[in-house]
Design a protein around this nucleic acid. Structure first.
Lengths: 212, 212
DNA sequence: TGGTGTGAACAACTTCACAGCG
DNA sequence: CGCTGTGAAGTTGTTCACACCA
């Protein structure tokens, strides 16, 4: 059990993918899977999967493989995903609206419970998805009342740092930042930047710039 | 110049970030920057930046630093971003609509020129952003006529593989896949998967599951 | 027998430290 | 003199290969 070597960041990202696949297999009624089969579906090396899992325990049965349902459950637990999380949307633009109504989030345990904007014309009536829109100045209050743990920032670049400051002040410690700037927060707050344009750039490089 | 050691994938991702920052600096009128200053802004090590750049040439001046404008230009060229690219949207849902009207893409050289869906009720009238919606069966024709190089898939999971097959058949070789499934394509097609739920999972792990 | 768990070999990437040049 | 460019050292992550066990 838990040997507590430090866990590679890459391992965490893969666990999330394994979990997705296991969820699907479970739904399809598959009961047992080997590391080789799972590796094949996920597009990684089988030893990689076994090694990733050993950071957290022994989950398999030698000569057999892994029980899909159990492994799914165990990975969820390891990742801290065995409970739903409430999410606030900061910045009600096109992207924000789309994310708030994205089914997948809800299916995977993320509830968008409130949206915030500085623009008074956006405040008051609910989003199409039914989520109420508050003035950004109400963030701390609403966050406390609704037990909001994660904020997702979809403001314009210029407004992102200011929004992040308010998020931190409201006691929220997890931020998913879709604005195309690096935001600065204190050490106890965790920010993940999602940069969609960078993904495009990367794709283009591999399509055209790669010599060989 | 070009020594042609293989370029780490991680280097490519960072170049895209450097470019973004340089673009910003150029706009602000900054003329020269050292690797240390740039590193500070990007949150990486200064030697890292210098090493990343040497994969493609010598761009700096010893004792001085880098000319912002020149370096910006050179990185754009290295990444293959010195021309605009036409993009097709496959799957007209909430997310697709939002992405098609996301300003940043256009500002960074990506034109959404056409959208496609199998649902006849979505076909015909243009998206709010002005982009026409075609039946998916017209993809090959429209792609050829409009010189579409990249497809962005925002269909439901079940439809993603079918959509990808049509994209490949239409001669498009770059795919950005937002559907939460791994899609299978031939080797000459490059797929990048963007998994928003995985980003949430990762954030949650770092917030709650991390021991120490 | 067959597939896991894992040390050891390997590969990739990052950082250091400093020579060399503008 | 200061900052780049870069070999070499250090670190992190991946794959191999096989002992071990259900």
């Amino acid at each position: 059990m838990s040997k507590h070597l430090k866990v590679p960041e890459a391992t965490i990202k893969r666990l999330s993918i394994y979990m997705r696949v296991l969820k699907d297999l479970e739904r399809k009624g598959v009961e047992v899977i080997s590391s080789a089969e799972l590796a094949d579906i996920c597009g990684v090396n089988a030893a990689q999967i076994r090694k990733d899992l050993t950071y957290f325990g022994e989950f398999g049965i030698r000569g057999v493989g892994y029980y899909v349902k159990e492994l799914h459950f165990d990975i969820r637990k390891v990742l801290g995903l065995n409970q739903r999380r409430n999410v606030a949307l900061i910045g009600v633009g096109n992207l924000g609206r789309a994310l708030a109504s994205y089914r997948n989030f809800s299916e995977h345990g993320y509830n968008f419970v409130a949206a915030f904007d500085v623009d008074p014309s956006k405040v008051g009536e609910a989003l199409p998805s039914g989520i109420p829109v508050y003035p950004l100045s109400d963030l701390a209050q609403v966050a406390a009342k609704n037990d909001i743990e994660i904020a997702i920032i979809t403001t314009p670049a210029e407004a992102a740092q200011g929004a992040a400051d308010k998020v931190v002040a409201a006691g929220i410690r997890g931020i998913l930042n879709f604005a195309p700037v690096q935001i600065q927060v204190s050490d106890d707050v965790k920010v993940k930047k999602v940069d969609l344009t960078t993904e495009f750039d990367n794709l283009v490089y591999h399509l055209y710039a790669k010599v060989r």
